[in-house]
């Protein structure tokens, strides 16, 4: 008789089930660390530049042209989006079906969300003064991010993903009401710093 067919004691069977479940989940779940670090750095640096440019009282701390600050922010965000897509898309995953469809639809939601943001920003940004224009772009992009993080939490029933999105939504709301300098500071430290910290915490937990 094959060794595989032997029955073990109940304890051993239960341990076998648990081992197999942990092993499967860890091998089929993409590593989320690059995603959090990439977005964290993009927001921390991008909104950090906007904060230095806008200043809390409307007087810039460092003279950075608006175009340069926005290009830095959206350049880094595009890079982060590519990193997320590459790690999350899971080309060559052996699994197909419901979860694959869920991931594809979710990926397209980001694309359509940011496309809409782009058109709104270009259309209405032109008529606004510099700092307000940067606030329009910043608040729109963070609104899309917050909504999609919360939606992601709902789709995969991941509570902390939802909570992170909700925190970003609150910071975005308060920041937008308070003005360009405050918004950039809150998002840089709160969302950017928070994402970097989350990435590092997940990295430590996954290495164990």
């Amino acid at each position: 008789m094959n060794n595989d067919d032997q029955a073990l004691s109940p304890e051993e069977m239960l341990r076998l089930i648990e081992q197999q479940e942990t092993e499967t989940v860890s091998r089929l779940t993409p590593n989320p660390v690059p995603h959090y670090l990439a977005w964290g750095v993009a927001w921390f640096v991008g909104f950090g530049a906007l904060f230095l440019r806008n200043g809390l009282s409307g007087r810039p701390y460092v003279e950075i042209p608006l175009g340069v600050a926005l290009a830095l922010l959206f350049g880094l965000m595009t890079l982060a989006m590519l990193i997320s897509a590459m790690t999350m898309w899971q080309l060559g995953s052996p699994v197909r079906g419901a979860s694959q469809q869920r991931g594809t639809m979710y990926g397209f939601s980001w694309f359509f969300g940011f496309s809409a943001m782009w058109v709104i920003g270009v259309r209405f940004g032109q008529s606004l003064p510099g700092p307000e224009q940067s606030l329009l772009w910043s608040s729109l992009s963070m609104m899309v991010v917050a909504i999609l993080y919360m939606a992601g939490g709902a789709v995969w029933l991941t509570r902390w993903l939802f909570v992170f999105g909700a925190v970003v939504a609150v910071l975005n709301t308060i920041g937008t009401a308070a003005g360009p300098g405050w918004h950039a500071l809150l998002i840089s430290v709160g969302a950017g710093g928070g994402s970097i910290v989350t990435g590092l915490m997940l990295h430590r937990r996954l290495r164990r």
Binding site: Q20, V95, G97, S99
Partner: peptide, 11 residues
């Protein structure tokens, strides 16, 4: 046990 960790509707 392995197949059970896949989401319902996944192959």
């Amino acid at each position: 046990a392995t197949l059970n960790t896949l989401a319902d509707g996944d192959q």
